[in-house]
Computed example of a mutant assay.
Amino acid sequence: MPSSPTLIFMGIFFLESFTAMLQNVFMVAVLGRKWVRCHTLPAGDMIVACLASSRFCLHGMALLNNLLVSINFSSIVYYFNIPWEFINILTYWLTAWLAVFYCVKISSFSHAVFFWLKWRISRSVPRLLRGSLIISGVTVIPVATGNLIMQMIASQSSHGNCTLADRTQTFYRYFLLPNVVLVWLIPFLLFLVSTLLLMFSLHRHLRRMRDHRPGPCDPSTRAHTVALKSLAAFFVFYTSYFLSLIIAVNKIATLQDQWHWAWEVVTYAGICLHSSILVLSSPKLRKALKMMVWKAPEKRLFISSCQNQ
Rank of each mutant, 00 (worst) to 15 (best):
F9R: 06
L182A: 14
W294C: 11
H224N: 15
C38K: 12
Y268H: 13
S244L: 02
K287M: 10
I277V: 15
G44N: 08
F56Y: 09
S70T: 12
S157T: 08
K251L: 14
R33H: 12
G215D: 14
P214I: 03
L94W: 00
A29P: 00
S53V: 07
I89A: 11
A233Q: 08
T170W: 12
F171V: 06
P83C: 03
T254H: 06
S136F: 02
A262Y: 10
A144P: 05
E298N: 09
M152V: 09
T168W: 09
R300H: 11
A223W: 06
T225P: 02
R286T: 13
K251R: 12
N147E: 07
R130A: 13
I271N: 04
L198V: 01
I252L: 13
A96Q: 01
D218R: 03
I121T: 03
L231A: 04
S4H: 04
K299T: 15
S281G: 08
L280M: 14
P219N: 06
S110W: 00
A296S: 13
V181G: 00
I246N: 05
P2N: 13
G215Y: 06
L133E: 05
L192N: 06
I76A: 04
A96P: 00
F171N: 03
I47N: 01
V181D: 09
W93N: 12
L255M: 11
F9W: 09
V104E: 01
V77Y: 03
S136H: 06
R167F: 11
T95V: 01
P297S: 07
V180F: 06
L192V: 02
T195H: 05
L63F: 05
L7A: 07
L278V: 05
I106H: 05
H59P: 00
P83F: 04
L15K: 01
D218Y: 00
E16G: 06
L67T: 12
L255D: 15
S136G: 07
S158Y: 10
R37F: 06
L51F: 10
R300W: 12
S124W: 06
A20I: 01
M27I: 15
I303M: 11
M150K: 09
L243R: 01
C103H: 11
S275K: 05
R286D: 04
L255G: 05
L273I: 04
I141K: 03
L51M: 08
M199Y: 02
Y172R: 15
F235S: 11
L280W: 10
M46S: 14
L51H: 07
I121N: 01
R222T: 12
A232H: 08
Q156V: 09
S70A: 14
F302W: 15
L196C: 13
S3D: 13
T221I: 15
A262Q: 13
I121V: 14
V77A: 02
H274D: 14
S75D: 14
T145D: 10
V140G: 03
K118D: 10
L289E: 02
C217N: 13
V104K: 01
D45P: 05
L206T: 10
V293Q: 10
I277W: 02
T6L: 03
G215I: 03
L273C: 14
P178E: 04
F80K: 01
L189A: 09
C103V: 00
P297W: 06
L51P: 00
S70V: 05
N250A: 13
Y268W: 15
A296T: 11
L117M: 14
T195G: 02
L198S: 03
L192D: 05
D257L: 11
V140I: 09
P5Y: 04
L164Y: 06
